[in-house]
């Protein structure tokens, strides 16, 4: 198993780790059985992600994808953050080993789950914006 230098950098020095106490959008995806859980905390103002933090239980790739995903959405409008794909996360990390690609899906899903939570708290049905969220990625990751 060989990780890129970028993966190791984000693993060894993860950005935006922790919680946001007054977060107004929180999403958690993954499953302890599969060995990774990702939790995203968002502070959203004027439809823009003012702050983002994460907590992750998982392998090096899971931690690195969470870290870089937070960097990629911080300060971005929600509409742009929702366009973040797992492919973009993988490219930003200079690639992931094939067995670890599901971690990037988890990062994408965690962000979507947190934004969906924000919409729900605002009394807005998130489905038209966010679509379907696979909170439990166990079934999806094998198909990548």
């Amino acid at each position: 198993m060989i990780y890129s230098e970028k993966v190791m950098d984000h693993y060894a020095n993860p950005r935006n780790v922790g919680e946001i106490e007054d977060a107004n959008g929180v999403g958690e995806v993954g499953n302890a059985k599969c060995g990774d859980i990702m939790k995203m905390f968002l502070k959203i103002e004027d439809n823009t992600i003012k702050d983002v933090k994460f907590k992750t239980f998982g392998c090096g790739a899971a931690i690195a994808t969470s870290s870089i995903a937070t960097e990629m959405i911080k300060g971005k409008p929600l509409s742009e953050a929702l366009k973040l794909t797992n492919k973009a996360v993988v490219e930003a990390l200079d690639g992931l080993p094939p067995a670890k690609l599901h971690c990037s899906v988890l990062a994408e899903q965690a962000i979507k789950a947190a934004i969906a939570d924000y919409y729900t708290r605002q009394g807005i049905d998130p489905t038209p914006f966010v679509g379907e969220i696979k909170e439990d990625h166990c079934d999806s990751c094998c198909g990548i």
């Binding site: 993860p14 780790v17 302890a32 059985k33 859980i37 907590k55 992750t56 239980f57």
Partner: peptide
């Protein structure tokens, strides 16, 4: 930095 650890110490059952 582990959400699972948070669940464990709060005594929450996880999926």
């Amino acid at each position: 930095m582990s959400p699972l650890w948070d669940h464990i110490i709060k005594g929450e059952t996880f999926k």
